[in-house]
């Protein structure tokens, strides 16, 4: 079965709603519950491999080797932090269509007043090992 990474970053969402820290507590709760329920459903269907949220850009670091052994480390936050990954789901599904379906569900997570936030979800297939016959 193909595996897909569903990725979401800190960028603008299509509903252009306020950042979560400005929502009402009830809306935040509804959003978190939605994510948990979605993960439970995927898990129950045997489709969830892993789902994680990542710690924020404030605690991120960029590391580049300086070619002499001492790496150059840049601490966050970064001006381009909207492009940073915020979280991912790794799923193992029967068809590409199913991956799209799950991504669409995730994108419709509720925001302020229960309206879908319409977050863009990047769907990337994970490269598989070569076929044993090849």
């Amino acid at each position: 079965m193909p595996r897909y990474m569903l990725l979401q970053n800190y960028g603008e969402v299509e509903s252009h709603c306020a950042p979560m820290t400005e929502w009402t507590p009830a809306d935040i709760k509804a959003h978190i519950d939605f994510q948990n329920v979605l993960n439970q459903e995927l898990s129950a269907r045997g489709e969830l491999v892993d789902a994680q949220g990542l710690a924020g850009p404030e605690v991120a670091k960029f590391v580049v080797s300086d070619d002499t052994g001492a790496p150059v480390i840049t601490d966050g936050p970064y001006p381009e932090s909207k492009e940073l990954l915020a979280g991912y789901r790794l799923i193992d599904v029967e068809t590409p269509a199913r991956a799209i379906e799950i991504a669409a569900q995730a994108s419709a997570a509720p925001g302020p007043n229960g309206l879908p936030i319409r977050q863009p979800i990047e769907v990337r297939e994970v490269l598989s090992a070569p076929d044993p016959e090849v």
Binding site: M20, T21, E22, W23, T24, P25, I28, K29, I32, G53, A55, G56, P57, E58, V59
Partner: peptide
Amino acid sequence: FRAAAARTTNLREQQYLTTKAARLSR
């Protein structure tokens, strides 16, 4: 609270701190 939420590496704590900030802003 918002600064703490942005820096924690524990998911539940992050949710708690975010909610705390939201409740106070209300």
